[in-house]
Design a binder for these strands. Structure first.
Length: 912
RNA sequence: GGGCCUGUAGCUCAGGUGGUUAGAGCGCACGGCUGAUAACCGUGAGGCGGAUGGUUCGAGUCCAUCCAGGCCCA
């Protein structure tokens, strides 16, 4: 008789090899066909909502590792919240306006005359194309959401909402217009937002210049790295608290800060000098000096931003060309001079240098200073300098009329700070970060001199140039834009937006504003999407650390101004994806790894598993070798599922708890602990703890311990024996728990497992159509048995020692397979001995050996609590269960079987 | 230059309120099994805890400084 046919080997069609790339595509098709997202929403329609508001990625290319990572984190959260019973609508968004797309399109249409219509149409198409591409790519990651109904910042309805936010800001008085220095790219001919600057080292002229005073022998020494801003000089700033020396060199006297004097004089190579006197900066306020280039007189002012760390302690002030200069200038009512045009060339306001590009004019200015004998030192100097993030051109500060949002209006800053305290920031330090950003930020420059964006709906009187910032005009613009999109603003004549005449000059004709909104204004108003659905504020926003200055902050500002409350209750921040060497992934470094490539090769579940293993609160190095370990981890999880499924193929009767075997009760206890640990890790958004707990459980508790021990019981015991059914009862519990706990992380594989469960197993579940409609398992306090757990801690410690002894015996060739062994134990401590005696009957199976007895023999190995001796097992090996025993052959029909197996054959009616 | 963050074995992570020889899992090496089999089991080798000082009887854990890296800002 072939006894192999009489044992219950695992049986399942769940394949060992996943072939994820192909299988995931099929599962995806199935989800689409059955409208899974809708089904899930339907299943939760009466439940409490959990609003996850999506931050819109920029629609100008394929997704990169960072976007994939962000999406996966979001999706794990969405799926988890759904599985604890919330209704979680997820409306994905896309950010479509802005310079990168505009520039890309201009490049593409090079040579063509770009009317607004042509340009905007091309931009729309460009953005639409990538919205479509990214949508596919995101869906491929297994992300659930309303993909048929996303929010898109270039949709007319969305644009109208943005305009409406602007209207409220105007009503509440937050908006003002002012000439003001802004970072200006002379190549893109546009003002840049703070977010668009890129600091790089640059070589500049570093010059020391004497500003002569009314006393022809006395000069104030200043230091600057931007000689071209000297024509716009209107003041010298000194620090009121610093000490200034009057340094006498021959007949000449120079005013230099005491702390900097030595360094400066050494640089100027001046050794012979004396200090005539020393005064505190404050005493020099109002001192008159002569402009170094032109024939005019200006005054000394005071400012605490003047530092004693570099320069001379005297700072040349040009409010038209520097932000700090501008701020000091405000308090002294200094004129804002900015004689530079949009391409960075001097205007006719400075005839001496008219038409010269400012950076080229540096040398002319230095020459002019030399002629006037005011230049004392000229050298090159390397320092960090802002560049345009797109075209990498060094930027200048240039004063232009702009629209601003006043941050200190209606105590906005203060209110923000108060609200920040109440919001749940994860991780906690993220609060400090946003706090500093809000506290330190200047007014928000809303306007951009660009074309691809939402127009700022303001008119100017054709006659007197008075700006008409009027809610009626804005409302009309909003309504037209809602119907026709932003193009409506450009296509309609000005008169369509206004009925009244200019309040100043009564002129009837108007010119439309050409500027558009900063893109942060577009995306910062995205909470209007959830507001329109009556889901304001969001429960959670989740983006990378860079968004403390980006989307988080701008969304927050716009909701705090217009709604007067925050748009989110909690904010989750994640680190950025870097390469293996912790360097930023960028095309120029050639270290970019595309998520799409990874998915094609390995599947989305592998990528998701990889990201879930990592503590995302800090930056994440992405490396393909690391991905390999995810593949290996995945195999372990998959094989665990396969083993569980295979051993449950004939399971139908659950064994009640009081009849379960002791080891099985123990596993119920441990499963409960796992469920608790995992649930709390999910709740605290610590996905890596979810991953590590589950994975360790699968390897340590299951594979290496429980499942290994169980094989004998599952395979060789009677089909319907209590021992076997008891084990299956636990395996079922474990299977159902694991598949649910892992569903948010590996949605495809768990779905595959779930389908296998519902199709093939006769388990008592409600059988939802998808694992993602199920609820997470709840920990059952009845399953906790601390006494048992304590007993088994000792047993496992002994087991570890037995394994060591078995390994030693194996090395001595006493045994090969552990079933060939007999384990003899002895404990000097009587309590331990009694304990062993009490558990003796289950010890062979726990050690996976054939025999165990307790007695004192010679040559025992010494372990901490017990002594162990390994010997060859007694008797013969049973052909069926492979366990060695002395009662082989008690039946004439089955000479090679042990009596246990003979009984099993009878029980299971194998012709005995 | 400022704000915030990170730095424990090759990799991913653990290490309440400072206290015995710093723990897992994977990988690696060696071995076993051939009834989870492109699986499974066992054993072993890997850590000057970014660096240097300090507090303390005692620090990966507290403090200071520095170094390296990241993001944001000047």
């Amino acid at each position: 008789m072939n006894y192999k046919e009489t044992i219950q080997l695992p049986r399942t069609d769940f394949p060992m090899r996943a072939n994820l790339p192909e299988k995931e595509t099929k599962i995806l098709q199935n989800w689409n066909q059955t409208q899974m997202y809708k089904q899930i929403q339907e299943s939760r329609k009466d439940n409490k909502p959990y609003i996850f508001h999506d931050g819109p990625p920029y629609a100008n290319g394929h997704i990169h590792m960072g976007t994939a990572f962000n999406r996966i984190l979001k999706d794990i959260t969405v799926k988890y919240r759904t599985m604890v019973g919330y209704r979680v609508p997820f409306i994905p968004g896309w950010d479509c306006h802005g310079m990168p797309i505009e520039r890309e399109v201009i490049k593409k249409l090079k040579g063509k005359i770009l009317t607004n219509e042509i340009l905007r149409k091309a931009c729309t198409q460009f953005a639409q194309k990538f919205v479509g591409i990214q949508k596919e790519e995101f869906m491929r990651l297994g992300v659930f959401g309303e993909w048929d109904n996303p929010y898109i910042t270039m949709d007319p309805e969305y644009e109208a909402r943005v305009i409406n936010v602007f209207k409220v800001l105007v009503e509440k008085g937050y908006v003002y217009r002012d000439k003001r220095p802004v970072h200006w790219c002379t190549s893109c001919k546009t003002a840049l937002a703070e977010a668009e600057l890129e600091y790089k080292d640059i070589l500049s002229s570093s010059i020391y210049v004497k500003f002569k005073t009314q006393d022809p022998n006395l000069s104030i020494l200043i230091w600057t790295t931007t000689p071209w801003t000297l024509p716009a000089n209107v003041a010298i700033a000194l620090n009121p608290k610093l000490q200034y020396d009057f340094v006498k060199i021959g007949n000449e006297k120079l005013v230099i800060a005491s702390d900097l004097k030595d360094i400066v004089l050494e640089k100027l190579n001046i050794k012979d000098y004396e200090i005539e006197k020393s005064v505190v900066g404050k005493e020099l306020e109002g001192m008159i000096y002569k402009h170094p280039l032109f024939d005019k007189e200006c005054k000394v002012i005071l400012s605490t931003f003047v530092s004693k760390d570099s320069g001379t302690g005297g700072v040349h002030i040009a409010p038209g060309h520097g932000y700090e200069d501008y701020q000091v200038g405000l308090s002294y009512k200094l004129p804002v001079i900015s004689p530079v045009d949009e391409s960075g060339c001097f205007t006719d306001e400075v005839p001496e240098f008219e038409g010269k590009y400012v950076f080229d004019a540096n040398k002319d200015i230095i020459e002019a200073l030399k002629e006037k004998e005011t230049l004392v030192c000229d050298e090159e100097f390397s320092h960090s300098y802002p560049h345009c993030w797109r075209c990498k051109t060094p930027l200048i500060f240039r004063a232009t009329p702009q629209w601003f949002l006043r941050i200190d209006h209606k105590n906005l800053r203060e209110r923000c700070v108060n609200e920040i305290e109440k919001i749940n920031w994860v991780p906690k330090w993220s609060k400090e970060r946003i706090l500093h950003n809000i506290l330190d930020r200047p007014d928000w420059c809303l306007s951009r001199q660009r074309r691809w964006g939402i127009p700022i709906p303001v008119l100017y009187c054709k006659n007197c140039d008075t700006p008409i910032l009027d809610t009626k005009v804005i409302e009309r613009a909003r309504d037209i834009i809602k119907k026709e999109g932003s193009m409506g603003w450009f296509e309609h004549p000005a008169k369509d937006f206004i009925e009244t005449a200019c309040p100043k000059c009564n002129c009837q004709e108007f010119i439309k504003e050409k500027d558009i909104f900063d893109v942060w204004f577009d995306s910062g108003a995205s909470w209007t999407v959830i507001k329109a659905q009556d889901s304001f504020p969001a429960d959670i926003y989740c983006e990378g650390v860079d968004h403390h200055r980006g989307w988080f902050q701008h969304s927050f500002l716009l909701s705090m101004t217009t709604e007067e409350k925050p748009c989110f209750k909690s904010v989750l921040t994640h680190g950025l994806i870097l390469d293996k060497e912790m360097k930023k992934m960028s095309k120029s470094l050639g270290n970019v790894i595309s998520p799409t490539e990874i998915i094609k090769k390995y599947g989305a579940d592998i990528l998701r598993l990889y990201f879930s293993a990592i503590d995302y609160t800090c930056d994440v190095p992405f490396d393909s070798d690391g991905l390999e370990s995810s593949v290996i981890a995945y195999r372990r999880l998959r094989n665990t599922f396969k083993f569980l499924l295979g051993n449950l193929h004939d399971f139908e009767t659950i064994v009640p708890k009081d009849k379960l075997l002791e080891l099985d009760k123990l596993m119920l206890h441990r499963l409960t602990l796992l469920i608790e640990k995992v649930t709390s890790a999910y709740e605290n958004v610590e996905f890596h703890k979810v991953y590590h707990s589950i994975y360790n459980y699968c390897t340590t508790d299951l594979s290496k311990f429980y499942l290994d021990i169980l094989k004998d019981r599952l395979y060789t015991y009677g089909k319907n024996s209590l021992e076997r059914r008891s084990a299956q009862t636990i395996l079922q519990e474990i299977l159902l728990s694991l598949v649910k706990l892992l569903a948010p992380i590996i949605p495809f594989t768990t779905e595959e497992v779930w389908q296998n469960i519902t199709n093939n197993l006769k388990l008592s579940t409600n059988n939802s159509k998808s694992i993602h409609i199920e609820l997470l398992p709840k920990s059952n306090p009845d399953w906790i048995d601390n006494k048992l757990a304590e007993d088994y801690e000792l047993i496992q410690e002994i087991r570890d020692n037995v394994l060591l002894a078995l390994e030693a015996a194996r090395n001595k060739k006493i045994i090969g397979n552990t079933l060939e062994a007999k384990v003899t134990l002895w404990a000097d401590n009587k309590d331990t001995r009694d304990f062993l005696q009490q558990k003796l009957s289950s010890l062979p199976s726990i050690f996976i050996v054939s025999q165990t007895n307790i007695e004192k023999v010679d040559n025992m190995s010494q372990f901490k609590k017990i002594n162990i001796f390994i010997d060859k097992a007694e008797g013969k090996r049973c052909e069926r269960c492979w366990i060695w025993s002395k009662d082989i052959g008690t039946s004439t029909e089955h000479l090679t079987l042990c009596s246990k197996c003979i009984n099993v054959l009878k029980e299971d009616n194998y012709g005995c």
